[in-house]
């Protein structure tokens, strides 16, 4: 005959199996902190060196006005920050998973990646369309909004707290269209400060 403790163990094991089989819990908080630092550095380069300072949606719509000279630099800077952040996140999360004796590339993380990729690719393509249409002012808000949507979706597969981060990013994105002259500052808050705060929070709550 089984004892009460056995039944309790059964329930605990069922819960743990449900969580392990449907959630990716090796997401690294440190990666968030580092991504925040890259973003702040990127924003500083964009502002101080490339003199990118969006104050209207259209950047140059008359033939007389000069096109934004730092454009190609800005695109490479953006892609560079993105690659660096993704690379860091992958390396640190794989390390985390290995520490727990799990594989990082499992059914759950595959599902999470394919869902998130659709949103991010749409956002990326939209950003390039805005570049071709000279609507550079919409670039920063677009990245904030689509990143927020992607993060919100990722929240289905990992720590629930991530969903709140997604909602804040979406709000910042919408605000930065409304107040486009502050969009670089809002972007720095969204991708820089928030990542650092949230990364430390995830680290403190789940990894220590």
């Amino acid at each position: 005959m089984k004892k009460e403790q056995d039944y309790l163990n059964d329930l605990t094991e069922i819960r743990s199996m449900m969580e392990r089989s449907s959630k990716f819990l090796s997401l690294s908080g440190w990666a968030g902190v580092l991504a925040g630092i890259y973003a702040i550095a990127g924003a500083w380069v964009a502002r101080s060196i490339l003199h990118f300072d969006p104050d209207s949606i259209l950047y140059y719509y008359q033939e007389s006005s000069a096109p934004f000279e730092g454009l190609s630099g800005l695109v490479f800077l953006g892609l560079g920050v993105l690659m660096l952040s993704l690379g860091t996140a992958v390396i640190l999360s794989v390390g985390n998973a290995r520490k727990k004796g799990e594989k990082a590339w499992n059914t759950t993380s595959k599902r999470m990646m394919s869902d998130v990729a659709i949103i991010l690719i749409t956002g990326g393509m939209l950003s390039f369309i805005f570049i071709f249409k000279s609507m550079l002012g919409l670039l920063l808000p677009t990245t904030l909004i689509f990143y927020g949507l992607a993060i919100y979706m990722a929240g289905n597969y990992t720590f629930k707290d991530v969903k709140v981060l997604g909602l804040i990013e979406i709000t910042l994105g919408l605000l930065s269209i409304l107040f486009i002259q502050y969009s670089l500052a809002l972007w720095t808050v969204g991708f820089g400060a928030l990542h650092i705060v949230y990364g430390s929070f995830i680290y403190a709550k789940y990894e220590r």
Partner: peptide, 25 residues
């Protein structure tokens, strides 16, 4: 049985899982 209970728990929260995913879990 613990293993059968584990299989059911994992399948209850996933649309489907393949053999290797179950084995790993």
């Amino acid at each position: 049985n613990r293993i059968r209970l584990g299989i059911m728990s994992a399948l209850a929260v996933n649309d489907s899982l393949d053999f290797s995913a179950l084995k790993e879990l």
